[in-house]
């Protein structure tokens, strides 16, 4: 089983997201980038699939941060076998349409049986990469998936809907799967192992082609004008606890 996982780094959302002087994008250079949290899930599900069905896991991404190696080395430490990065003049914040096109061009020569990607990323304003990849590759796609089982050249997947409802689908391989959550929480890789890999493993590089762009233009980026911001309670735990208890009592919900 030849399994591919598309990885992408996104800004750390707990950072202060500063908007550039034109007011049309984030000030990306000021931000710290981390692996998209749903890619962590996709990687875990890929490694679990490999452990169950055999094969290899290749991680691949477009290097938009100049720091993709970190994510690739970590993935190798978690059980991926091979890492590829697509290089070129692709700045931080490169749109999904461009990344999907570049990934598809690289992936099509690798004849995967399964391509996993995170179901979404925090910055995909112009749409999710995984279904675009499927469209470019001419492969079937199911997203919002929480569990994949491979048998007899097919993947049985569970797709989540609202309210805890799920659907089971059977998908002929090769296929692209948008992972919402792996069967089990993503594993941890010891820093020493990541360091070791960083010293010894060579990441394969592929030069990317042209960037088609998203097909839409951001006129204005801004922080949500909170229609109603919470009334903030100052003070430490004591004071805040007092306020909460008072409010619950006022509503007649404190029975003791």
């Amino acid at each position: 089983m030849n399994i591919l996982v598309a990885l992408k780094q996104v800004p750390n959302l707990t950072d202060d997201l500063e908007i550039n002087s034109e007011g049309t994008d984030l000030n990306h250079d000021a931000l710290q980038y981390v692996l998209n949290e749903w890619d962590e899930q996709a990687l875990e599900e890929a490694v679990l699939t490999k452990e169950a069905a055999g094969g290899t896991v290749t991680v691949i991404g477009v290097d938009t941060t100049g720091e993709l190696n970190e994510a690739l080395f970590t993935a190798l430490a978690k059980g991926a076998d091979k890492a590829i990065k697509i290089t070129g003049d692709y700045p931080r914040g490169t749109d999904s349409h461009t990344q999907a096109k570049l990934l598809a061009e690289a992936i099509k020569d690798l004849s995967p049986d399964l391509v996993f990607a995170g179901v979404q990323a925090a910055d995909d304003r112009d749409g999710q990469i995984a279904p675009m990849l499927a469209a470019h590759l001419g492969l079937p796609y199911v997203g919002v998936v929480t569990g994949v089982t491979v048998k007899d050249g097919k993947a049985v997947v569970h797709k989540e809907y609202a309210g805890g409802m799920m659907a089971e689908f059977e998908v002929s391989l090769p296929a692209v799967i948008g992972v919402q959550a792996a069967h089990q929480p993503p594993r941890y890789a010891p820093v020493s192992k990541i360091r070791q890999i960083a010293k010894t493993v060579k990441v394969e590089e592929i030069a990317g082609g042209e960037a088609p762009g998203s097909g839409s233009t951001v006129r204005r980026m801004f922080k949500p004008e909170s229609a109603g911001h919470a009334e903030m309670w100052e003070g430490g735990p004591e004071e805040v606890a007092e306020k909460i208890v008072a409010l619950i009592r006022e509503k007649g919900l404190l029975n003791r």
Binding site: P11, L13, L17, I19, L26, A122, G215, M221, F222, P224
Partner: peptide, 14 residues
């Protein structure tokens, strides 16, 4: 509404 709800981006199709 992107970046986990922290940013709004107003866009037009090309």
């Amino acid at each position: 509404q992107i970046y986990g709800g922290k940013i709004q981006a107003e866009a037009v199709p090309n």
